[in-house]
């Protein structure tokens, strides 16, 4: 099977010994059916999983990059929905793509959206629960976020690129992904917002998360990101 796999992944190698057509000729092109199936199906899985990276690279370049990736990082899990977790780092290390420095972050965003799509279900808590907390207790409260919540930090206007926007709103963008029903929604976060949400995800109290955010961005107001979380059905419970 080792020889079979090597020949599958490298079209320059001959077909393995002992394979024949019905007339006892050597297998020849018949083996190429398996080669094509393996390589084509994995490239297709990457194109489906990274549609914006595919658009930015163009289909021909994507075929080349995905082909190199699948040989360096063949899947280890039969669930194609999770294939490509190493693709962003692979893009980053690919020297020919240096002039597209944003590509790896776009891939990270697409991967996070896909993970949010398949994440576990968690019913959102009624928003009144937050209003019922006495103001003096609010900063001592911890919030539990839905498994679909993701935060992507980028030095590039990654959401504008993903949206195919004609003009970028800012140089760097942090992105929050929520999944109010079944479709993940990526939205830009204000300065400090990513730090605040990442602190909450690590179990920080609202007040401690606020301190971390204002250290990074003194004008930070948690009202905006909190509204994004509420509208995104991302608050599951309070503690």
């Amino acid at each position: 099977m080792k020889q079979f796999i090597s020949a599958l992944m490298d079209a320059h190698l001959p077909a393995p010994d002992g394979l024949q057509d019905g007339m006892a000729h050597t297998a020849g092109r018949r083996f190429d059916v398996y080669r094509n199936n393996v390589v084509h199906s994995l490239i297709t899985a990457l194109k489906v999983g990274f549609p914006t990276v595919t658009r930015l690279l163009g289909p021909e370049n994507m075929n080349r990059v995905a082909g190199a990736f699948l040989r360096a990082h063949p899947p280890t899990d039969p669930r194609m929905m999770y294939y490509g977790a190493a693709f962003p780092a692979f893009l980053e290390s690919h020297k020919q793509l240096d002039q597209m420095g944003y590509l790896a972050d776009v891939a990270r965003l697409e991967l996070a959206i896909r993970q949010a799509y398949h994440a576990g279900d968690a019913p959102a808590m009624p928003s009144e629960h937050l209003a019922e907390i006495p103001p003096e207790a609010l900063l001592q409260t911890k919030v539990h976020l839905a498994p679909a919540v993701q935060v992507i930090r980028s030095d590039w206007p990654v959401l504008d690129i993903w949206n195919d926007a004609q003009t970028a709103q800012s140089k760097a963008q942090d992105v929050l992904i929520t999944r109010p029903a079944f479709d993940p929604i990526p939205q830009a976060l204000p300065p400090g917002g990513a730090t605040w949400i990442l602190a909450l995800m690590q179990g920080a109290k609202l007040g401690d998360a606020l301190d971390a955010a204002t250290t990074e961005a003194p004008q930070f107001d948690m009202g905006g990101p909190l509204t994004l979380l509420l509208l995104g059905g991302a608050l599951v419970s309070l503690e």
Partner: peptide, 17 residues
């Protein structure tokens, strides 16, 4: 058919003798 060998998944239904 087989599709996995030594932890590597090939995403196709491959033949066996």
């Amino acid at each position: 058919a087989w599709s996995t060998h030594d932890g590597q998944f090939l995403n196709d239904l491959l033949p066996l003798p």
